[in-house]
Design a protein around this nucleic acid. Sequence first.
DNA 1: CCCCTAATGGGACGTAAGTTCCGTTAAGAT
DNA 2: ATCTTAACGGAACTTACGTCCCATTAGGGG
Lengths: 205, 205
Amino acid sequence: MEQSSRLAGTVRPGGRTARVRAAVLEATQDELVEHGFHGLTMDQVAARAGVGKTTVYRRWGSPAGLVVDLMNDLADQSVPHADTGAVEGDLLANAVSVLEALHDGRLGPTLQAMIAAATCDDQAAQGLRAFYSRRIEEWANAVDLAVKRGELPEGTDGAEVIRAISAPLYYRLVVTREPVTREDAERSVARTLAAARAGAFVSQG
Amino acid sequence: MEQSSRLAGTVRPGGRTARVRAAVLEATQDELVEHGFHGLTMDQVAARAGVGKTTVYRRWGSPAGLVVDLMNDLADQSVPHADTGAVEGDLLANAVSVLEALHDGRLGPTLQAMIAAATCDDQAAQGLRAFYSRRIEEWANAVDLAVKRGELPEGTDGAEVIRAISAPLYYRLVVTREPVTREDAERSVARTLAAARAGAFVSQG
DNA sequence: CCCCTAATGGGACGTAAGTTCCGTTAAGAT
DNA sequence: ATCTTAACGGAACTTACGTCCCATTAGGGG
């Protein structure tokens, strides 16, 4: 996998350019942890990265641009899905990985920033959609295997099952802003699984 | 119900003060529709409302403060829940009302702004939590009645059922940023109901 | 190893958001 | 009706973000 869609377009991607990008993305993430997306300023990112602010404006254009690039960078780091051999275990592993990502001191704020950036920038929205659709696809395989094993009804939509697992967790995080606990993750798995076994995730119904 | 927690604290809430507030909240919502939360500026709100910007800064302090007050204003407008006599109809009515709110040209952007404001301001987060917990409570009654009628298992947690209905819709709206359709609403109801009938929403499990 | 130029960096500049000061207006009590 | 003062409004001021210009640095091809 290529390291970056943005760098790929440059004429001199090696050496200094790559170093600058690494420093800027690092600084961006640090700033997100401390001030969140709404407090992300090009100026401070440049200062923190030890880079001219002209460079940051030229290459990324806006705070949303920084987050988009950061998002692409994270998207390239593929996270392998679990395979415990039984749906319940796989889905719980999925829910827990979401939970841990949201609670991670560095990744959590970054994910929230990605969501915030997507609300005010089309490119960020597109990037976010791509980011999650890829993650969802990867985990959906586990559900498809479960269908083949006969654990779930024929025709069950794997991607939708994975979405259904995450939805309540993100809903609590972003919308009602309640704490998201492991119990929430377990409940989400149990409920989704109950619906799936009842055939509620079979494609056209 | 009092008209506003903020006005209640003022010494002269009548006449001009109330007129100013109405104009400012109106202008705030217009600006949110056009530019979203990230583009909400005190200056333009003041100009649009035909009010001194000093006044806007003094009474609301920040864009987040404007949204918080707008949120309180909306929270006071109680939305009665449906009662079709059968769970499925009530829950579908709930899902559709959420759907319509999100698609409404004025309320949709306002709700998104409330969410955005909550990500960068504690007071807004608290307000948002209160806003939704109240709406959830109101609709939870319909589920409780269904339990009494024997349509759902004893001990089913009504509030959690209502949350489960909304979660996938908001998830699509905010996180994956896919379009939210009536089919999504219907699927969400069907799946939640399947899980509820299987007892997945009974309190301790 | 040298050259060409892509890419970066510093600093000056313009603009707009946010703050402060003080005079003006009108709510509401007497 | 009159008076007190809460609340508003205009305008100057301060700061910080974003832009522009040009000098400097270092890839990477020859």
